[in-house]
Each structure stands twice: as C-alpha cells, then as structure tokens.
C-alpha cells in the first residue's frame, strides 16, 4: 500500500481496476476452458464488459459504449445465434489432443508471447515523431474529440470502413444463402470422401 500511496492511486480507481481485471481474466479463462460453446460465449460477454469498464476508467467513454453495443450486444448475440442454429452446443472433448505436440507447443509459445509482450511494454519504444492527432487533455469531451479525429484526419479510412461493412453484409448473405438443393445432393461431395479414405 505504501507503493500505491507513493504513486497516488486513489482507492476507487484501484478497486475498479482490480475487479475489472479479474473479470477479464476469468472471462478469458472461461472462453478457453468451458466445454460448452454457450458457456464460452457467456464468459466472453463478461470479458467484454470488463474491458468496457477499463475503457471508461481510461477516459474512453465512447469506445466503452461502442464496445458494449457492438461486441456484447451484437457480436456475441450473433455467436449465440449461430451456436443455436447449428446445434453445436454439445460438449467438446477436452482431453488428450489428437495433434501430437500441439498442446505443449501452444503452452510454450503462449508463454513466450506473454513474456515478450511484457518486455516490450516495459521498454521505451517510441520511435520517430509522435503522430499527434489531438490532445486528450483539451477540455472538450471524449466523444467530440473522437468525432473530430474521425471526420477530419481519418475521413477516408472511415468511408472505406463503410464500404467494408457493406461488402461484409453482402458476402455473408451470399455465403449463407440456401441454394436450391436437390434432395439427393445432401451427401458429402466427392473430394471429402477421398480425404476420409486417406485417413
């Protein structure tokens, strides 16, 4: 606590961070460890909410709102829909991995990733001039700041994302569209059969 006092962290901030941080980690663990996809999705909501809280904590109110609306509200619901539609809410076997060496390698590499990111975050990595768009210390609100940045400096990327969204919607419709299938064609295509022969 001496440390904390030295850095002048107020208690509410600390509590917020700790609670949200623990929620983030727990949610992530849930996603990774839960056997039922529905449970995974619900754990993910927890994580996303916690991240939104952390956004607010760091004065990014607009993004926090968007995070809740888009991620928790739309994306996770989409996930759940797909899970329900496909009926894959059955349990997955989490025992021994069929791929030899995949799991230990994964653990090792993830560990190294973690360490490396920490090392990166510790050092001072600023190179070159700072790309100052707009200072966050100015008195205007966060939403207005963001709006100014997006609609002036980043107008072209913004327009591009709108195109991207339209393309994504059209692509999704095309992908999911049910082609008029003949009754007999429900069986697996030929190349997949040869694949099973190879096994």
């Amino acid at each position: 606590m001496i440390d904390l006092l030295a850095t002048q962290i107020t208690l509410p901030d600390l509590i917020t961070f700790l609670v949200a941080g623990i929620a983030v980690v727990l949610g992530a663990l849930g996603v990774v460890l839960m056997r039922n996809p529905v449970h995974s999705a619900l754990s993910m909501i927890m994580t996303l909410f916690a991240v939104a809280v952390l956004f607010i904590e760091q004065d990014a109110q607009f993004l926090a709102a968007v995070q809740v609306i888009v991620y928790a509200g739309a994306i996770v619901v989409l996930f759940l829909f797909v899970i329900m539609l496909l009926g894959v809410d059955k349990k997955e076997y989490l025992g021994k991995d069929k791929l030899r060496g995949q799991r230990p390698l994964a653990f090792i590499s993830v560990l190294i990733i973690f360490v490396e990111i920490l090392t990166l975050a510790r050092g001072n990595w600023a190179t070159g001039a700072k790309a100052t768009v707009m200072s966050t210390t100015s008195p205007i609100s966060n939403v207005e700041q963001l709006a100014r940045a997006i609609f002036t400096t980043y107008l072209l990327p913004f327009e591009a994302t709108s195109v991207l969204l339209i393309v994504a919607v059209v692509g999704a419709v095309v992908l999911v569209r049910r082609v008029d299938e003949k009754p007999g064609s429900a069986e697996q295509p030929k190349e997949l059969e040869t694949e099973s022969e190879m096994k």
């Binding site: 791929l99 995949q102 390698l105 994964a106 590499s109 190294i112 990733i113 490396e116 990166l120």
Partner: peptide
C-alpha cells in the same frame, strides 16, 4: 490450429 501455431512461432522469433 497447427498452422496457426507455426505462424505464431514465426512471429515469436521476429518479436524476440
């Protein structure tokens, strides 16, 4: 998943 692992290992080396 296997491919993803290889990719990440490659990224690891570069990051390292």
């Amino acid at each position: 998943r296997n491919y993803a692992l290889y990719i990440s290992i490659g990224a690891l080396v570069i990051l390292g």
